[in-house]
Amino acid sequence: MTGSGAERGRPPAPAEARRAAWVAGARAAVPFTVAIFAFGISFGVLARGAGFDALAATSMSGLVFVGSSQFAAVSVIANGGGWAAAAVAGTLLNLRYLVMGFAILPALRGGRARRAVESQLVIEESWAIASDADGRFDRVRLLSSGVVLWLGWVLGTLLGAIGPFKAVDILTYGLDAVSPVLFFLLLAPHLGTPRKRTAALTAAACALVLTAVAVPDTAIAVACLIAVVWTWRAR
């Protein structure tokens, strides 16, 4: 035995602490799930319009579980593009999960396959809920928040794909303002040191500029670059 599994991460928490983490993760995910549920409805509506039946749209949400990527892929189809262009567009928007997947890896347990499957529950919300201020991650909070968010996304998609909804409802109820606020609430605990604050401010400024010149998707790559520079400066 190499014992590498025991060396990785923290020792297993007692049952009580683990149960508390399950509850904490699920509870933290609830406000996001409301937003994601509404987002799922609008995705279901879009997918239906692009010729996806309810089964195809819901399967996609259940197995891909990345809103932005699914929106991009389905939009390409809706605009008359081919399946290859749709798949490429969706895949490009997934690339940020390369970095996030590596980051969460030390917190996961079990063999390669199991960790790869657990990684599928990583989206921005579950990743942020699972993260501690010291750069570590809590596996239980990742899984519990991920499952709650996943349910909201899949059920929302199903409802949008079969129901009488229109995507515009999101605007009427102001739900499009919910996600920036939620991301701000997730950001706040990560601003504890001056260096983290300057990293966040620099990233926000870059994101403003990149959105202004209509390439907001590149801002994710710029955030990675900023993190590299700040890591290097902090040596």
Binding site: R8, S131, H190, A200, T211, A219, I220, C224, W230, A234
Partner: peptide
Amino acid sequence: ELPVWFPRFVEYLTPALLAVLVVTQ
């Protein structure tokens, strides 16, 4: 194992990535 600098990288990646998401959303 991941390299030793990786947790520090993630410490900066998290606020940077979330700040980007606030702005783009």
